[in-house]
Computed example of a mutant assay.
Amino acid sequence: MNEDDAVDALKRLGLTTYEARVFVALQKLGTGSASEVADIADVPRSQVYGAADDLEERGLVDVEQSNPTRYRPVDVDEARERLYRQLESESDAAFDYLDSVREEYGTADEQSESIWTVRGESNVVSRAAQLVSAADERVVYGTDDTARLEPAVRDALEAAADADVEVTVVSENDDVLDVADDLGALPVSVCHQPTPEMGAARVVMADDDAVLVSVLGDDGAETAFWSRGTAFASMLSSLLGQFVAAQEDQ
């Protein structure tokens, strides 16, 4: 299978031509701006922005808050899970091609000093659960709303606790703490909100080097900012760890 065949297969899965070409180009780049994508994809630069925005809505691309805006594709396995319901026989070949591109260009394990944005509740839930599942030693999950303990999040927290990962759930809401106890996590009651008030819908810390913080917009839509292996992640993890320790001592 060549690149044109892969683009055609992705189109049959529901992507537009421009979306498919931008997604393949980003697999080659690992991360890239609209200009960099346009340089290697048969897509006008003016059309890259719209295609990348549509890919973000599908949960296939993360957007870095920078100037210029930069884009990063999700892992091939994650994309496969999101689109698998629509796969036909040729779809496996398309994803095999994307895997080979990542291997060829050496971007599969790339780390970036960046903060990424995830929009939409289902996409935020997926990212939060993924961070929890990837933890080896410690997870802190904070929320005051039981609605932010979706089944995927609960399963990830419970699986982490069963794997002897230190799991702590922090909340002012006793109902949230009851769920945490049922999952085998350590429930920590927040006696007072940190100052200044962050207004976060959920906070995730994994292994002291990965963090996710989400907020709700005026329309109720959830947006999360997350980072892994960066100075920002380490700093926020340290602050969160100190806050949790202070609550445990009270």
Rank of each mutant, 00 (worst) to 15 (best):
216 L>S: 07
199 G>D: 05
35 S>D: 14
132 V>G: 06
142 G>P: 04
78 E>M: 08
222 E>P: 03
103 E>N: 08
187 P>W: 05
78 E>W: 02
169 V>T: 02
78 E>D: 14
236 L>G: 00
52 A>F: 00
227 S>L: 09
166 E>P: 07
41 A>F: 07
239 L>F: 06
72 R>V: 02
27 Q>P: 02
127 R>E: 10
13 L>K: 01
231 A>Q: 11
69 T>V: 14
154 R>P: 05
120 G>E: 00
126 S>I: 00
67 N>F: 11
187 P>S: 05
158 E>A: 15
169 V>D: 04
10 L>A: 06
173 N>A: 14
62 D>G: 01
180 A>W: 02
11 K>I: 10
167 V>Y: 09
185 A>N: 03
187 P>R: 03
228 R>I: 09
79 A>Q: 09
238 S>M: 13
81 E>S: 13
27 Q>T: 04
90 E>Y: 05
208 D>V: 01
39 D>G: 10
58 R>W: 03
43 V>D: 04
2 N>R: 13
50 G>L: 02
109 D>N: 08
139 V>N: 13
183 L>W: 03
75 D>N: 11
193 Q>L: 06
1 M>L: 11
50 G>Y: 01
67 N>K: 13
122 S>I: 03
205 M>F: 03
205 M>A: 12
153 V>E: 10
55 L>T: 01
129 A>S: 15
168 T>D: 02
29 L>E: 01
92 D>G: 08
159 A>K: 15
65 Q>L: 15
248 E>I: 14
197 E>T: 09
45 R>H: 07
